[in-house]
């Protein structure tokens, strides 16, 4: 049986009440497809931070997870302001978050750094006033 599996979820910007909902569902689905342990955990954490980013900064976005025999690739595409300085955004502690994000326990400039730490390969492509694409790859 092939272990290939793909799933996509839309995420609405500014919907703070539901932050994390999609990631919890993705974790449940991945678990159901035999992903366990550290790999499951890293995929879930990277997805959660990415979901919070869409809700915090973009108008809308999409989380796509593709599982193959050797990897989990997670692509997060959003329509939003884009990132002006990617190098700076990657730094721990750098944040442009507002109070609403901070009240939720996020916005301390750890997000992209956490995502990178969970990934075997991580790429950010961003265009100002168009949006951002995060490409996360985790080897199985």
């Amino acid at each position: 049986m092939s272990r290939e599996y793909e799933v996509s979820f839309p995420v609405k910007g500014d919907n703070f009440e539901d932050a994390g909902k999609v990631s919890v569902e993705i974790k449940r689905l991945l678990k159901g497809h035999g992903i366990t342990g550290d790999i499951l955990r890293r995929a879930a954490i990277a997805t959660y931070e990415s979901e919070v980013n869409i809700i915090s900064y973009a108008q809308q976005g999409n989380i796509n997870v593709r599982v193959t025999d050797d990897s989990i690739s997670i692509n997060i595409q959003d329509r939003g302001p884009g990132i002006t300085d990617i190098e700076q955004a990657m730094k721990q502690g750098y944040s442009t978050a507002n109070d609403r994000i901070r009240e939720m326990g996020f916005g301390a400039g750890m997000g992209l750094f956490n995502i990178k730490n969970c990934s075997d390969s991580f790429e950010i492509l961003s265009e100002i006033n168009k949006g951002t694409l995060l490409k996360i790859l985790i080897n199985r």
Binding site: A19, G20, S23, V24, I45, Y48, E103, M104, G105
Partner: peptide, 17 residues
């Protein structure tokens, strides 16, 4: 152990087990 109370804490707990 946290001082936050919003639903996020439950989702996070579920993510990190």
């Amino acid at each position: 152990i946290t001082g936050l109370t919003n639903p996020q804490i439950v989702r996070i707990a579920s993510i990190v087990d």
